[in-house]
Structures are given as structure tokens and as C-alpha cells.
Design a protein around this nucleic acid. Structure first.
Lengths: 330, 330
DNA sequence: TTGTACGCGTTATCAT
DNA sequence: ATGATAACGCGTACAA
């Protein structure tokens, strides 16, 4: 592949002039500049990124490490991040940690080694990752969940309040035995949603009971098992609060298998307003998270940090919106 | 951030020894090696990627440029690619071209500049991209669609056959006026699906008619408009073949708006077996693409190319599977 | 086995 | 305005 000195030779100038011409630096003689551009074009010259990054000690690349590329919530975040990053001249690379602490650590490691300008992360809770980040000065923004044992710029959702609202909504609709599938313990969004669920039960003066809670991974399969185990009880729940849209798929499949119709037979609220939720009969009541905005805000926070490294970290908490549909109407 | 010479100084050895010890090269005195490792750990040393890549003239990073991160089909491809890449010691970075030729070109440019080991791409059809790739030796694998005007390793699906089968299925189920929403013209998958649809009509001895075809982007909104425009006709179709799952959402919403029940009132087949398609009532008949496998095969093709650069490019064509469900049962 | 020294391709500094 | 050259951090050929 052609290098800068190939271009220089062809254009009959020095490498310094090529660099200046191609980067629009200083004042370069228009004629020379034209020669350089022509030569670069002819050779298909493309600056060597590693060399440039090495020399400049910086890159225009941001890394976003999300826990599930197949979850529309996270891909919507990615869109938000990308739009903002792109507008500011940064490229975004996406990595999928699959909610596995090891993979997360690995990708953070790669990002750090490649000296990306900044990292956006929806942490699994791996303290190794935190430690890794602590030892470096690369700016980090946590999205959706905070970093464990570390302050950083953070974009969160008020999960607790959202879960409480959803639970209260179910109670107001007359459901009395409300179950909850909050997701895995140890992940803050899951724990918060569980706490909010309990708040809601308390406010509604409904009896809380751990027998109505089943924890699992944020996957369809886990949710299927949890739902099945709840509904097979002698005293099954008459409503379910489900922690995300991937789990919702599992739950709804289980309900269908059991011949239970959402709304009439069992109230259902799930987090995330996926496009398909309106297609169901009845359509699904959801807690809509402003995923795109969360991504956009996170990216902006990171960009701000890059230009003003001194400032103290901030946490922005966005609000969800309950979208009431048929699955909570008897 | 600590450099290799910082480590060398702390361990009381030369940088060469540090390099050798950390990379497990040659034979290094165990005691020295231990000192090096300890020093590296103490300093939180992390090799400088750009410097290493510059020196080695290679990276262990693959780039996957897909046209829609919010489409489960492409994210499933990404999973397939990632699993294979990861197992071979490569990291994967994901870029979202949003089916915009300019963005695609830009990301290819970035990937080339960063000297990634290889590129996987679901091309928009941008010939600028092809030209860019042609001028470089970086291995490329096209996924889902071929590169325009260029041979390369390619992983395709037999879209034409799949569309024909789907159309024939509709015909056998008694639908007579079958419409088609194949996606944008100029994108091969769309054109092939349209061709297969016409094949199917011919085989079934049904009259083909361009008035039953509406082209749009691979988006829900485009599909909504297309569906509406078809169904508002005095002689509307009694069945629809829809080119992907994102468009299917738009179509199904439109049917619901019009009070049309899939299966009974109008047959519906869509490409892509998204998780939610079984939740509908009636569940959706789909053309299931082996997306994960397509990604895995593509990654393997790329890895093979990296180890054996000389070989002629190959094209692998996988087959789709028609999954019959209620939306094609009257 | 270990250390010295060079070069990867680029940008920035310093003369000219 | 332009050119020569040093330096970024690393790996490796060569010398010891």
C-alpha cells in the first residue's frame, strides 16, 4: 500500500509538504497542493491509521460495548451514540459483551490497547473491568447501568420509579397477585426494577411475596422457565411485570402455550417498546425507555469530557414512559 | 500511560527482553520473565496498539459493516461472525452503514485506514465502495449481497428460490392475487426476491402484474405506505410476500389498521424468522434465513483468506427454509 | 540468554 | 512556503 513518501516522490515534494497539503495545514502553495492531491489520488493513497495514531497520540474512534446486540434496546442506544459521535467526526465501533464479564473485560482491554478516544459501556458488574478502567485515563461513560465501585459519567433510567408505576398500574387495573421477572441479581437495572416492583406493591397495599419473583438472565429462555415455574404454582400470579423485551418474548410464548390470554387471564407489562409490541392481540403494555436519547446523551457526555477533561463526573437520569395497551385490560 | 521502556527500567532489563517476555517469544530466563511480568502488572502496562500494529504491519481486528443494526437478521449475522472471529483470536468491530452508500464508503475507508485484517460487508451497491476496495489488498467478504462489479468471497442466500417457494406456497393455499413488497430496486436481495416471486407466479400459472408490486426501502414506514397503496386499490391483493422482518412490522400494522386478519382475509409471508413472529395471532409464516450461519461461514471464509491469500474467491449460497404458520391459512 | 539499534509511517519542530 | 529530521512505542535482526 502506498505510503506518504511514495506520494511525496511522485509529486516531487517532501513528505512534510504532503502531510500539510493533505491535512489542510498552514499555507501550502496551491500548485504544489494540487500536485500532491493528484499524486495521492493516482496512488490510491490512504494514510496509515496506526502510524498516524501513534504519532498524534490520539484517535477519532469511540468504542461502545453493549451487553446484547440482539436486544433492540441496546441497538437503539447504539444509534443514538452513533449519530452524535458521527456528527462530531468520530467513528463508532460496537462490541458485544453478551453480558459475559470476561468478554466485557476483553473488549475493554482491546479498546484501551487501541487507544480509542473514549469508551461507552453498559457494565455487567465485573469489577475487573472497573479496575482496568481505573488504571487508565481513557474517559468512560456508563450507559444504562453504573460502573461498580467507581464514579464516572453515567446515563441511567429511573428504573425503580418506572417499575413502581408499572406495578401500580397493574394494581389499579384490578390485578391482585402481581409477579415479577426482574432479571439477574447483581445487575443494577434488575435490582432496581425489583425494588420498584416492591414499592408498587407496598403503595397498592398488596402483599409482597418472594414466591412471586423469579430471577433469570435477560434472555427468552430464562424468562420461559421463570414464567412456567410461577404459573405452575397452585396459587399462580394474575399479572406479570417483565424486565425487558427479550424476556417478554419468552413469557408471552409460555402464556400462549398455557392458553392464557394477556389482559383477560393475566396482566402483562414489559420493559421496552419494541416495534412488534403493537402487533400482538392484545397489544402489549410497555415501559418505554428513551433508548435512543440515552445513547445520544451518553455520547454527548463523552464528547464533553474529551474537550473538558477536568470537570467532575455527572449522572443523568432519564425517565421512562408507561404506554398502556391491551395486555393490562381485562 | 506506561510504555515498554518504563517496564524495562522497573524490571532492570532491556525493552527487548520485556517484549520477548510478554509475548512468550524465544527463551527468556524465568526469573527475569517473572520480574518483567511483575513490573508490567505494577505499572498497569498495556501495549500500545497503534505502535504494535505499525511495527507488525497487521492487526487482529475484523470489521463488519452491516446495513441496519436494528434488524435482527443482521445482528444474528454479527453473532455468527463474532463467535468464529473470537475463537480465532480476532476482535470484531461492528459498523452501521444504515444502508446509506456514503456511510458505507466512510466506514470502509476507516477500516482500511486502521489497517484491519479484513472486512465483512453487506454492500449497499455503492460502486465507490467497490473501487475503494479494489485499490487495496485488504481481504473482503460480502455477506447477504455481492459486491457490485467485483468478485470476492461471498456468502449469499438463494433468495430467488426462497421467494419462489414462498409464492408457490401462497398459491397452493388458494391465494390468487399475490402482491409483493420486495424492497428497494438496485439491491440484489430485493431484485432476486422479486424475480423469485415472478417465477412463482409463473409456475402457479397466476397472472403476473406489476400493479401488485411496490418497492420501498427496507423499513417499516416504506412498507406501510406500500401496503396501504396496494390495499386501497379497487382490486387489492389477497396475499402479500414481504421482503424482511422490519417491513413486516409495517405491513402487519397496516393490516390491523384496515381490520384485515392475516390468513383469513389476506395471506402473509415475510422473510426472516424473528422471535416475535410466533407470538402473533395467527403466527406469521416466514422464510427463515440461516443468518447466524451466514455470518459464521463468512467469517470462516475471511479467516481462510487471511491464511491462504492466493486462492480464488468462492461464493457460498445457503438455503432458506419456509416455516409455515397461521398467516397463510385461511 | 540478553542488549543495542533500526525501522514501521506519520506529524511536528526547526531551519532555511 | 518548504524541506530535513526527530519522535511516537513497539518488535526483531544482529551482536555480544
Amino acid at each position: 500500500m502506498a505510503t506518504i513518501s511514495d506520494v511525496a516522490t511522485l509529486a516531487g515534494v517532501s513528505t512534510a509538504t504532503v502531510s500539510r497539503a493533505l491535512n489542510g495545514k498552514a499555507t501550502v502553495d496551491p500548485e504544489l497542493s494540487a500536485r500532491v492531491v493528484a499524486a495521492a489520488e493516482e496512488l490510491g493513497y490512504r494514510p496509515n491509521g496506526p502510524a498516524r495514531n501513534l504519532r498524534k497520540q490520539e484517535t477519532a474512534v469511540l468504542a461502545l460495548i453493549i451487553s446484547d446486540v440482539e436486544n433492540p434496546f441496546f441497538t437503539a442506544i447504539a444509534r443514538g451514540v452513533e449519530d452524535v459521535a458521527h456528527a462530531a467526526g468520530y467513528s463508532l465501533v460496537l462490541c458485544n459483551s453478551d453480558d459475559e464479564p470476561d468478554k466485557e473485560r476483553e473488549y475493554v482491554d482491546v479498546a484501551l490497547q487501541e487507544r480509542v478516544a473514549g469508551v461507552l459501556l453498559s457494565p455487567t458488574g465485573n469489577t475487573d473491568t472497573t479496575e482496568l478502567l481505573d488504571r487508565n485515563t481513557t474517559p468512560v461513560v456508563a450507559v444504562d447501568r453504573p460502573l461498580p465501585e467507581r464514579t464516572s459519567d453515567t446515563v441511567l433510567l429511573d428504573n425503580r420509579l418506572a417499575a413502581e408505576e408499572a406495578t401500580l398500574h397493574l394494581a389499579r387495573r384490578g390485578y391482585r397477585r402481581i409477579g415479577c421477572l426482574p432479571g439477574p441479581s447483581g445487575i443494577l437495572t434488575a435490582d432496581e426494577r425489583l425494588a420498584g416492583y416492591r414499592d408498587g406493591l407496598r403503595s397498592a397495599e398488596l402483599p409482597g411475596s418472594t414466591t412471586l419473583v423469579r430471577r433469570s438472565r435477560f434472555k427468552a429462555e430464562g424468562a420461559r422457565q421463570s414464567a412456567r415455574s410461577l404459573l405452575d404454582r397452585p396459587d399462580p400470579p394474575d399479572a406479570l411485570l417483565v424486565a425487558n423485551n427479550v424476556m417478554a418474548v419468552g413469557v408471552l410464548q409460555t402464556l400462549a402455550d398455557l392458553g392464557l390470554r394477556p389482559g383477560r387471564d393475566i396482566g402483562v407489562v414489559a420493559f421496552d417498546d419494541a416495534p412488534w409490541t403493537t402487533l400482538l392481540d392484545p397489544p402489549l403494555t410497555v415501559v418505554a425507555q428513551p433508548a435512543y436519547d440515552m445513547g445520544a446523551v451518553a455520547a454527548q457526555l463523552l464528547l464533553d469530557r474529551l474537550t473538558a477533561p477536568g470537570e467532575p463526573p455527572t449522572t443523568q437520569t432519564l425517565s421512562a414512559k408507561l404506554v398502556v395497551r391491551g395486555s393490562t385490560t381485562r
